[in-house]
Design a protein around this nucleic acid. Sequence first.
DNA 1: AATTTAAACTTAAACGATTAAGCAACTTGG
DNA 2: CCAAGTTGCTTAATCGTTTAAGTTTAAATT
Lengths: 335, 335
Amino acid sequence: MSKKVSLKDIATKVGVSTATVSYVLNGLEKEKRVGVEVAKKIKDAARELNYMPNQIARSLRKGSTNTIGLIVADIANPFFGQLARIVEDEAIKHNYTVIFGSSDEDCVKSEALIDTFVNRQVDGFIIAPSEGCKSQINALINREVPLVLIDRYLPQLNTSYVVLDNFTAVYDAVTHLVEKGHRRIGMVAYENSLIHMSERIRGYKEAMIDHQLEKEIRIKKIAYNLPRQEMEKIIGEMLTHLISDALIFATNALSLAGLYAVKTNQKKVPEELALIGFDGNEAFDFFDSPLTYIKQPLEQMGRESVRILLDEMKGNTENQHIQMASKLITRASCG
Amino acid sequence: MSKKVSLKDIATKVGVSTATVSYVLNGLEKEKRVGVEVAKKIKDAARELNYMPNQIARSLRKGSTNTIGLIVADIANPFFGQLARIVEDEAIKHNYTVIFGSSDEDCVKSEALIDTFVNRQVDGFIIAPSEGCKSQINALINREVPLVLIDRYLPQLNTSYVVLDNFTAVYDAVTHLVEKGHRRIGMVAYENSLIHMSERIRGYKEAMIDHQLEKEIRIKKIAYNLPRQEMEKIIGEMLTHLISDALIFATNALSLAGLYAVKTNQKKVPEELALIGFDGNEAFDFFDSPLTYIKQPLEQMGRESVRILLDEMKGNTENQHIQMASKLITRASCG
DNA sequence: AATTTAAACTTAAACGATTAAGCAACTTGG
DNA sequence: CCAAGTTGCTTAATCGTTTAAGTTTAAATT
């Protein structure tokens, strides 16, 4: 890489000190009383030399990097990909850059990412925390690093967060199925103790109880890191000795695995089995009977999380807790 | 944010200079002949104080940031999301961090991103260049910034790149359709002069000519930034006065828009219309007759691009040009 | 015993910006 | 005409590392 142009080069060329150059290029010429001709010379020289400020040097001096660290489960997962895009756009608007990392819901990876980002002096974090990573997050809190949790939060910790109202989302989904005449409603969830999952399960259970269907409660929990084929197989087995006439899937990936299983097992939807998915996906639209699903307000979630983070970075230490309402997109898969 | 622990804090605590601490913590104790006890004390102190090196300071001093800038069209697009994930993993393995940005195929955004990343002193770029951004890329070349183009390249410029063999990909797709008995084969492409698109179109045209079907050549070009509904409408219009018995879609987004249009217009696939998509998507699997598609070797592309970039960052100035073979996943949509 | 070599550090400059404090050379007010 | 203020800069410290070039003390060699 060729040598870069620094403040000093401009200073030398114009014949002033770097301080003066810095003032002018930061728009402080009035405040710092730099002469009009000198200011013009400096600006001209900067343009001529194609000067670009070294953000690293500036960051070191200022103690802030204008960088946000974003940690999600997997950037390749469209849910997080879309979220990342919204965060990116919002960050750029406020002159921040995003560095990202995928944790794979794995504490070791998550910790490595957090450490890397802390070393790189990010000004704040947006994190979808993984199971069992409480201590890492807590360490951030103790260091007073601005932080917003997203998608899930840790009830034991005092942080800002932006999540879905998962309880109501699933509660309403169950109610919808009941209204459509289904009774033996099952749920397919992840084996995960985090709040987003437990709230979805709680929403399911309470709704079942409230509709006098507690005897029909049946939850299948699947490990997160299984490849899709495995998930599909497990759900497929559920389908062969079918005890449910409706299934709710607790995540997008589970919904997809479920759809593959239903397709493989040639179950008729909704006649034999009604389905409700999570998050939305083009595949939902092309399934024989388009899937009813729980839609998250991604756009707002991304924006709010950045807004709150910026707020915290400005010094606001008050934690903000946001639970957003989902929308049930009702289509043919529930009858 | 609470004050951070610096080398100086450790130095003070142990009673040595920061130089000694730096040597020890960088594993240079042998080479720089630091005493065994002192080294141990330093390591203990570092652990005790939970020292984390300030990457910003290190970067400033070393002149390299261990950061890769990744610019794609849209991180929310699964194609680029998956690519980003692979780049991320590969980068982490080599102790690099990725900062990313989405250009939306827009030169203004792309330039802003490049400038931001240059200011942040990224050590190298992986870029999916947008139409008409040649001068920006050229500026990078002139600055001798390590750079790998991905997905498309600029034939006029001397850069490394990793792309699909788009010509052969589409050529073979046409041949497949011809073998399946289709003759009036059309193509739906983007209005884009970049090489990836022009090569796909050229592959289509040459294949048609080679199969004596030049009279059947029909290409519909659609602007990139249209919302999906618009694309769907345009493709829908094509379908109502149907002059083709087969369609090849030149990208993933176009394939999806096409599927929606086909569904809306209730065309029977493959009887009335055969289809070939690009890139793969779960929706392809749930379409009435699963879609035949051109699959890109994403994993290898991501890895290769990082490998080449690391190579360039190590000082290798030789440009590497990689064209990868696609695979035609044949299914029911072509008869 | 004088000189060289080695061991175990320290000193201080440098990276490229920001910014508080200082200092001439004017202008103004009384 | 002199003190005070204003204008238009400069000086130099600082951020937290890295690293070339010393320095001191002890051990080895001649």
